[in-house]
Structure formats: structure tokens, C-alpha cells
Amino acid sequence: MRTIAIPIPEGVKGLIFDLDGTILDSMPLHYDGYNHALAAYGVHYPEDVFHSRGGIPTRDTLLMIAEDFEIKNFDVDQALETKRTFVESNLERIQLILPVFDIVKAYHGVLPMAVGTGSNRKVVTEMFERFRLGDYISHVVTATEVTHFKPHPETFIKCAEMIGIQPEDCVVFEDGKPGMQAAVAAGMKVVDVTKYL
């Protein structure tokens, strides 16, 4: 097995992973999906803003964009469906992020693990099946199961409850600022995977 390139903080008892941009290299596809959906409104979503909102559910992000650009008569449901169709038609573009997946494989059966993501349950189920992530991780919290999204800590608190580990004994692997803020708010350690990719 490859050497693990991303350090694990000392003394942690549970591992929690974001999905998009952390385990899966899916962010470029999602970014293109937003711009595909926004083309009808003559809007181009800036890439830096997109990355600053990583982990926020798509509907909420689209509403933020509509406010940012003062889009009149914005049909969020139509934009949501257009983006979803685009992403689902291009799933072959998504690949595993191997340095993070190495951690998942190395700690499978060693420490309890969970995924906490801002994606909805349907998309997450498809990704778990496509990459056989369920062979390694059985505990998953999606946007479908929470009331408050990242940067609120609810997603990661639920992950800790699922794996039976106290928040202060968990480490979260994240690529997005809202997710990192959520981990800190939950009282967990956090590893910014972008520093190692």
C-alpha cells in the first residue's frame, strides 16, 4: 500500500470525511454544473466564490448566487434540475482523491469512520455505489438528514454520534472553508486536505 501522505493528528479515535473535494475529485464538475445552469441568466459564477462556499447545499448556493447577481425571476427549481442533470450526465469525470482514499483504506477496521457531506442522499448513494465506498464507510450524514448545513456543526455532530465517539476525539478531513468552520464549531480537530493535494 502507498505511504499515507496526509498526517493524522495524534490521539484521535474517530475519522470524519467530507465527500466532494475531499474523497472525490468532483468540484470541477460541480463548478461547471453551476455555470451550465446559470447560462440562461447570463451569469458566470466566479470560481473563488464557488470554492469559498464548498459544503453548502446546491439549493442554498443557487439562492445566494441569485442574490449576489440580483437575478430577476430566478427559478431555483429549474436551475437545480439543470445543474443536477448536467452533473449526472458527466459522472465519469469524477475520480477518487487517492491520498485521502489511502487514509480510508488504511484505517478501515482500525478506527470508526463516517462521511459528512452537503450533497443530498440520492447523489451520495450513487457515488458510494460507483466507487464502492460502502465497503469502507457505513456511516453517512447528508444534507437530507440535517436541518442546519455547514458551517453549522450539525452534520459533524451527527457523524460523531453515529460512530459513538466524542467530538473532541474526532478529526474532520475537509477541503471547504464552511466545512472547516463546522468542524471547529463542533469541537473537532480538522485537517485541510488541500494543503497536501
Results as ranks from 00 to 15, higher is better:
V172F: 12
V87E: 12
C159P: 07
L80P: 09
L98P: 00
Q166P: 00
I65R: 02
G109L: 06
F128C: 13
A186S: 05
A143I: 03
V123D: 13
V100I: 11
V100A: 11
P112D: 01
H152F: 11
F101R: 04
G134L: 06
K122T: 15
V171W: 12
I97F: 05
L96V: 14
S52R: 13
F131H: 07
Y107R: 09
T155G: 03
S138N: 08
G179E: 07
N120Q: 11
V100E: 11
L96P: 09
D77E: 15
S138D: 14
E145V: 03
D68I: 01
A185V: 02
F128H: 13
H139K: 14
V146Y: 06
V76E: 12
I163L: 04
D169R: 10
K83T: 01
T147H: 11
P151G: 08
K150F: 12
T125S: 15
T147R: 14
D77F: 05
D77I: 04
V172C: 06
E161M: 06
M113E: 02
G109N: 04
T85R: 15
A79G: 04
F74L: 01
R130N: 09
T82C: 06
C170T: 08
I56P: 11
K122I: 10
R132H: 14
R84T: 14
Q166H: 11
V123S: 15
A185G: 05
V141M: 04
F86I: 02
S119K: 07
H51Q: 04
V115L: 08
K105T: 14
